[in-house]
Nucleic acid binder design. Structure first.
Lengths: 245, 245
DNA sequence: CAAATATTGTGTGTACTTTACACAATAAAT
DNA sequence: ATTTATTGTGTAAAGTACACACAATATTTG
């Protein structure tokens, strides 16, 4: 029979092996990163934080965190929005999963990117917390990790999605003028749109409700205000997914 | 000082704790599942395997596997196609990541779904291996795990993508007649298309090369054969991603 | 080898959609 | 009362989508 000392040593060795399995072999970390878009001063913005990794101290990064073992992916995304930016009740959509082995300097971490659209005015107070800042989308570069790639893909996806589905409204106050709506589309797509054709198109979709109010305190003729009518949209959804050979 | 016996017991306890951490706390498993589409006898098919989990013994499932800690996500998808079906050199695209905590009975496993398009004729020999079978897409139901949901979403995505980009060609032999191409689109989209309008549209895209050959051994007037011209497509890509307010 | 069969290849008119474009009406500021 | 900036509105032209029919051709059959 072995001495208790040798037994102990053997056990300690086993412990070490298992720990290294935990750390190196078994473990693929899983995180969620949120690309949070807002719209302010006629510009499309993205919410970034100071990276919490030393290596990237001076760089901005997306808001993200590890997924907890007992937490749904979507739930993790909602938690990150809530915990890191105080955001609640927002539009959220999965975009893509990034899984290059070397994308994270701290080890193997696969990240699922989510895109979120929020109304900056409505959430202003909370999100101005420490380390958070709204950046113009066209001046974003050189983010931490592979976050620039994640951001680029998310923006691209937003540009496409917004032309097929009425997502943009999440970025505006609940009442808005057609001019504001057009500014939003112009900002997202980085193009100029014809005002008359834009109005015609939006009205023909029949997803706007005229709420019989007008803009206040504008130094020119005020525009009517509208609301996005989600129910009408639901009934018309098929229109947006047609086939056309 | 403790007796060696009590030390041993203590260490065994520590071992157990760590093991349970490995299994329950630290560990979110990451897998890739491939939805492999093929086209045969004018029907869209999907390649399924017998589930290797006892619980799902009688059910079919997608081809999947755990991602290795030192393996890129895309590489894992390619490996699965290669290892499980002998497929090489195929069209592959990430679709969506499924992360419900309870989606896998064996523990927490988040899975990244990939969609693959292959030419059945070209790969026939290899993929008829044990436990693999091509199923008509419209008779797929009740797969193992949440694979039905994954399959449904992938099919939906394919239906949309194929209308925006010329992906379908990956499902056909390199030489094909316009009738075959139309059959393919009809099968993917589950609709009837007008033959003249379909031809007109495809020709107007200018992505087909007339290779001056005709069908053989058909009991009727033979059709011309074409090739998909990838280079022409690359040059025209913008057409498919236009904006249209 | 003639007729029957099945499918290819082709064009036009109509409806709908997209685009380009200009002027009168209105609230605020001076 | 005038200036300023922006709203609200319609029409014509170009382009795209859709519906639809008949002659040409290779194979099969008698």
């Amino acid at each position: 029979m072995q001495s208790s000392r040798s037994m102990l040593l053997k056990n300690i060795k086993t412990l070490k092996v298992i720990r290294s399995e935990v750390e190196n072999i078994n473990h693929i970390g899983l995180s969620v990163d949120c690309v949070i878009f807002g719209f302010d001063e006629n510009k499309l913005k993205v919410l970034l934080m100071r990276s919490d990794l030393e290596k990237f101290q001076c760089k901005w990064s997306l808001l993200g965190d590890l997924v907890k073992p007992d937490e749904d992916l979507d739930a993790a995304a909602y938690r990150i929005l809530k915990q890191r930016a105080g955001l609640d009740d927002v539009y959220l959509e999965q975009v893509y999963t990034f899984g290059k082995t070397n994308r994270h300097p701290g080890g193997r971490v696969v990240t699922v990117a989510y895109c979120s659209l929020i109304n900056i005015q409505h959430h202003k107070l909370k999100t101005l917390a420490n380390e958070l800042h709204w950046h113009d989308v066209d001046s974003v570069n050189d983010l931490a990790f592979d976050h620039k790639r994640i951001f680029d893909l998310s923006l691209q996806r937003l540009q496409k999605r917004v032309q097929e589905h009425p997502l943009g409204f999440s970025l505006l106050p609940s009442k808005f003028s057609l001019r504001e709506l057009q500014n939003l589309y112009e900002a997202i797509l980085s193009i100029k749109l014809d005002r008359r054709n834009f109005r015609k198109k939006l009205f023909s979709m029949e997803i706007l409700t005229d709420i019989d109010e007008i803009e206040k305190n504008v130094p020119h003729r005020p525009g009517k205000l509208y609301k996005f009518d989600y129910d009408k949209y639901e009934r018309k959804k098929k229109k947006w997914t047609g086939i056309d050979f």
